[in-house]
Design a protein around this nucleic acid. Structure first.
Lengths: 303, 303
DNA sequence: CGATGTCCATGCCGCCAGGTTATGGAGGCG
DNA sequence: CGCCTCCATAACCTGGCGGCATGGACATCG
């Protein structure tokens, strides 16, 4: 009997939620669609997987048997997918470089140029990741190497080489009262609403809210964004302010948004990262070396 | 990205055959359908999996990566399917009893009756297996316990308890010259064409061709069948003759087919079998005990 | 050199599975 | 008693999959 992984994901979602309606919302499908799919799965297997009641869907015994194994199968497929895509990019002589906005900013172009020089025939394919994914696609296998900002969740399982540090500044609406100040002590920003990254990004989000430099003072969240354009809009609209690397002032200049130096927050560290599985991958090593070289020459100037 | 296991099976088939046309035949689909499916898989993955040429389809590097892992994934799904179905039958208090035609013949009904007595509330669901599958569904998880004839392929990995032995006779067309004889020495049948089981059944097929009792004399195959009705038709039509357990004379009597005793072939051994995983399954053990009890009383009379 | 055979690709069509919206029915709850 | 929650059903639409027929490229052979 054949099955679509989509159907399995549907099943797992319903099993986890114990509720068709919630699972449907989580899966971005309508509830009747889920009803039909689950029913069809039960028909194909010739057994009931759930017992229905007004309070939701409870797994039956065979349902539990399936629910125990299905996640591993889905993970297995994801893994295969990652490996196949990695092989595809290798075969096409493409290095997939993930980066989060502000990853290396000015350094990015020289790094790619140096890489092209050192690896003729290869192409660095830049892939911007959302802030919901601050490993820039490394942890989900969408990138071979990544330009990131530390700290980020999952960095312990990856190889991380620091490149340079850079002071953090604050981005605020041009109309903001503090926008006229030349330098702002971070303490003066404690009560300001902040434009934050999505919750999934964990320590990364906390770092850009400077949670450690607030001496316990709580954070006010004015908006949540996961990409630069939303972020700039939110700031320009006055939904909140945000910390950013100094280079953002040049890289993400925009009418209505001003950047001001801040005292009392640690500088941001940029790094290049890759998977342990790629420790012996000469192309990845070359890219990392390009990063180090450029970081120690051109970029210090930019700072 | 989601995928249907059917699509993966298609891919694996093409990878193994190295040829769309042959793979299509093996999968019982048309060649254009396969062409489209493979092309779609490549589109979804964003990479070529095969290089096409007049001589067929050769795996690319990413194709090889996928082809290495896909079979394990498919096997994993099959395994999950087996376990889920097993759980389903357990939950429904159904014991799935596989049998090959002639499995236990007369003994079958008393066994089931005894099982119903010993396990009220449970139901023995009989499932006849084709001769292409002489473990009667045990090895593919479609049965919890099986009534079989020894030897059969894969029996070493299963628990097998012999029940009784029974002489083998020969089934031939009523019009066959030898049909008038009372008892036939097997040697007289060496040059007759035989109606055989499919090749997959390996040692089982050989046993019913009495390969060991021919002193090296080659077998002539007149027809290949995988179920009793085809088998009886083939014999009645004179395509060949075949060995069968004595009880087949009563169980598979049919106009145009006669059964005669044969000397010089070993008797057939009937057995009950189950999976090692079910060693501790009390229902399976009960069924096996029912088989032993009935085999040692009622069936000896039948013989 | 043309005939033939073997590959894979393409075009066209019918059908079904999966999705959506709207609605119904059955219980819990304030 | 009205309302909310949750699952099931109905009606409808669309896209994907499969089938057949056919085309195009190339090798082989008489």
């Amino acid at each position: 009997m054949d099955i679509d992984t989509r159907l399995l994901r549907y099943f797992v979602a319903v099993a986890e939620e114990g509720n068709l309606t919630h699972a449907a919302r989580r899966l971005f499908v309508s509830q009747p669609a889920l009803t039909k799919q689950i029913k069809q799965l039960e028909t194909q297997l010739g057994t009931a997987l759930f017992t229905r009641s007004r309070s939701g869907m409870t797994l039956t015994e065979p349902g539990r048997a399936l629910a125990e194994r299905a996640p591993a199968l889905l993970a297995g497929w994801d893994q295969i997918l990652r490996e196949t895509k990695a092989a595809a990019s290798r075969a096409a002589r493409v290095l997939r470089v993930g980066f989060v906005a502000s990853g290396a900013n000015e350094a990015t172009q020289p790094i790619v140029a140096e890489f092209s020089r050192r690896r003729p025939g290869w192409r660095a394919q830049m892939r911007q990741a959302s802030w919901a994914n601050p490993s820039a696609g490394l942890s989900d296998g969408e990138a071979d190497v990544a330009l990131v900002r530390l700290p980020f969740p999952g960095q312990d399982t990856l190889r991380v080489t620091p490149l340079f540090t850079e002071p953090r500044c604050v981005a605020l609406a041009a109309a903001h009262p503090l926008a006229t100040r030349d330098v702002i002590p971070f303490r003066d920003l404690w009560d300001e609403p902040f434009v934050a990254a999505p919750a999934e990004s964990g320590p990364w989000r906390d770092y850009w809210l400077a949670a450690d430099e607030r001496e316990g003072h709580p954070v006010r969240i004015g908006a949540v964004t996961d990409q630069p354009d939303d972020w700039l809009n939110a700031i320009a609209n006055g939904y909140g302010i945000a910390l950013a690397p100094e280079s953002a002032a040049r890289f993400y200049a925009r009418p209505g948004v001003v950047y001001r130096p801040v005292t009392g927050v640690s500088p941001s560290r940029a790094a290049v990262a890759w998977t342990p599985a790629d420790d012996d991958n000469p192309v990845v090593r070359d890219f990392a070396n390009c990063c180090l070289e450029v970081g120690s020459s051109g970029c210090t100037v930019a700072l």
